[in-house]
Amino acid sequence: MLHYVLSRLLRAAVSIVMVVTFVFVVLRMSGDPATVIMGADAPPEAIDAFRKAWGLDQPVWIQYFAFFEAVFSGELGRSMRDGRDVVAVVLERVPSTLSLTVPAFLINIAVGIPAGVHAALHRNSLIDRCVMVMAVTGFAVPSFILAMLLVLIFSVNLGWLPSAGQDSWLNAILPIATMGFGGAALLARFTRSAMLEVLGQSYIRTASAKGLPWPAVVWRHALQNAAIPTITIIGFMLGGLVAGAVVVESVFSWPGVGRLLVVSVANRDLAVVQAIVLMIAMTMVAANMVVDVLYGLVDPRMQGQARGARR
């Protein structure tokens, strides 16, 4: 197991190096940052000064290593709007985003997985069909439409809940509901098909044939196997904890990371955008690593030769 975890850590490290390289290349490829930021008609001296300040006058490979150094020491520059350290600017928004995404994520799991399992166990029943209709709806309707629909019903018509801002916990309900529903629908769909696949396997028949009652067959033999593909989807959701709220935060004017990203892109605040992109990438890599380790825990085949007893 240790060997397995180490190899996954190594893989994650490689991914991070590639992500940082990618961000570096993309930023260089999107044009000369100096002219992009200062404007094409800026005086040449100002551009030169900017280049010097950002190290853009150095050879590319030195810039590359300098960039790495900056990333790993957490010095990603200052925001062009208010001159504050971008890491601080981004980090102060994180709790706000997490206060939406974490509850939404919990709803996804608490609703999506049981719904999917139940639908698979009662295939073609009324409940199964309801779950599938909900799942397809949640999958097909974009979150901003759902968000606006919820606002229309609960804020405009019924007047129960606020439609924007961050004044009280009531403001969080609609965004959480929006994200909770979409994710739960997705998860229900995947759990259902994973479960159906597993229920058709030969070892399920073996478990029944040895006299296990059906609930025990499902609980002991089906769920853990169905968890294997489901974990992949949960991993995606985990990776989206920080990034996934861009649209919903914008609709509900929720001052989180997603909204900051949208505003910063609009303002060409490159340092902030860069910091957010890197943070999102890192959370994705981290989520992937968590998924890999979970795989190893759930599926002994993943650990492969880590333990010696082969043949």
Binding site: H3, Y4, S7, L10, G304, Q305
Partner: peptide, 14 residues
């Protein structure tokens, strides 16, 4: 005298 070998690597670090 045909011979054919395959390389099999065990794990990422193997």
């Amino acid at each position: 005298d045909l011979a054919r070998s395959y390389m099999i690597r065990r794990g990422l670090l193997g």
